[in-house]
């Protein structure tokens, strides 16, 4: 049966069901157990935003509270993965990935390739991404492009509770290292999710809205901005097709191109900084492979090329919103009519 739960609960349920199904699945990270056994509010905090709450009581020592040393426990998770476990490591904020980058991009991402397929590294690294929580420049970045750039890593960034559960289960069952990006502004977002386990394959985009006038490509929180813009535009007589990439690596370019072939217009929305972003990548690939279908230049709506501001007014202005998406669509549709 399906019922309505939050994205936070969807993640918790995915971890719970996979730990129940597969004894090789373990979880590790800072405060994911969170002082279980200690009195009062400290008990079983369940990670910095309470995502893993309650799992320790069910699965005990298969949840490991780690020291505040990302380089140590991410390395340990990767090592455990090469030795037969399926660790899910929570790295709190993706912004901290820098301190354990060698383990991720020079070790985990390379093993399968360098050992000729004889080694697999089925590790999932969960991390919070995105701005909007007034957490300043070092805790608010959308670093998805950094990981998408590296062959050997898979990168996922879901936009709904349903996709979150299915893609997290898909990531855990995948034999390659997966960077699983959770938008911190979406943990309380609700949606219908089946109780039964299910997995969504990595590398499949989702057309969340159909339309014939303009394609909007987005992922994560930006899918909702794109959909909001599409609703506004529909009342003006412009029908947008919204493609949620869901997985950034592998990328479902076929679905994007199929949509652009139908609409002739493309707007790429990305919360990341514009240079070498997912928006830039999708724009480049569509220009390379489907130039003949385009009736107007491709437009990008992204954050500016600056760190995320701490001042609330500036942070709000930094994050792409529906009005900017709608403006970009109006402009491209007018150009190529």
């Amino acid at each position: 049966m399906a019922r309505t739960i939050t994205m936070r609960q969807a993640i918790n349920e995915a971890l719970d069901q996979e730990m129940t199904r597969d004894p090789s699945v373990i979880c590790m990270g800072e405060d994911i157990v969170g002082g279980a056994g200690s009195p009062g509010e400290d008990d079983a905090w369940g990670g910095v935003l309470g995502v893993t709450k309650g799992l320790y009581a069910k699965h005990g020592d298969r949840l490991l509270d780690t020291p505040l040393s990302e380089s140590a426990y991410i390395g340990a998770a990767i090592g455990a993965a090469t030795c037969g476990l399926r660790p899910v490591a929570e790295l709190m904020f993706i912004d901290f990935m820098g301190v354990c980058f060698d383990q991720i991009y020079n070790q985990a991402a390379k093993f399968r390739y360098m050992f000729g397929g004889k080694a697999v590294t089925p590790v999932t690294i969960r991390a919070m991404v995105g701005a909007g929580l007034r957490a300043a420049a070092q805790h608010s970045q959308m670093l998805t492009p950094v990981f998408t750039h590296i062959p050997g890593l898979k990168v996922v960034c879901p936009s709904t509770p349903y996709d979150t559960k299915g893609l997290l289960i898909g990531s855990i069952r995948d034999d390659d290292p997966v960077i699983f990006c959770e938008h911190k502004a979406m943990y309380d977002m609700e949606g219908e999710v089946p109780e039964t386990s299910y997995s969504i394959p990595l590398g499949e985009a989702n057309v969340v809205r159909e339309g014939g006038d303009c394609t909007i490509v987005a992922y994560g929180l930006m899918v909702h901005k794109a959909t909001e813009a599409a609703e506004t535009l529909a009342s003006e007589g412009v029908e947008c097709e919204v493609v949620d990439l869901r997985s950034l690596s592998p990328l479902d370019l076929d679905t994007v191109i199929e949509s652009v072939e139908g609409t002739g217009h493309l707007v790429c929305v990305d919360e990341a900084n514009p240079r070498c972003s997912i928006a830039a990548d999708v724009s480049a690939q569509v220009a390379q492979h489907a130039f003949g279908s385009l009736r107007a230049p491709i437009a990008m709506v992204t954050a500016p090329h600056t760190p995320v501001p701490f001042a609330p007014g500036l942070e709000d202005a930094y994050i792409p919103d529906a009005a900017r998406v709608a403006k970009a669509v109006r402009s491209t549709v007018a150009t190529g009519a």
């Binding site: 299915g166 089946p194 039964t196 299910y198 997995s199 969504i200």
Partner: peptide, 16 residues
């Protein structure tokens, strides 16, 4: 329709 395909897809993706 997209909705119909989605609904069936959700079913056939359930474990088992």
């Amino acid at each position: 329709s997209r909705e119909m395909v989605d609904q069936v897809l959700r079913y056939i993706r359930l474990d088992g």
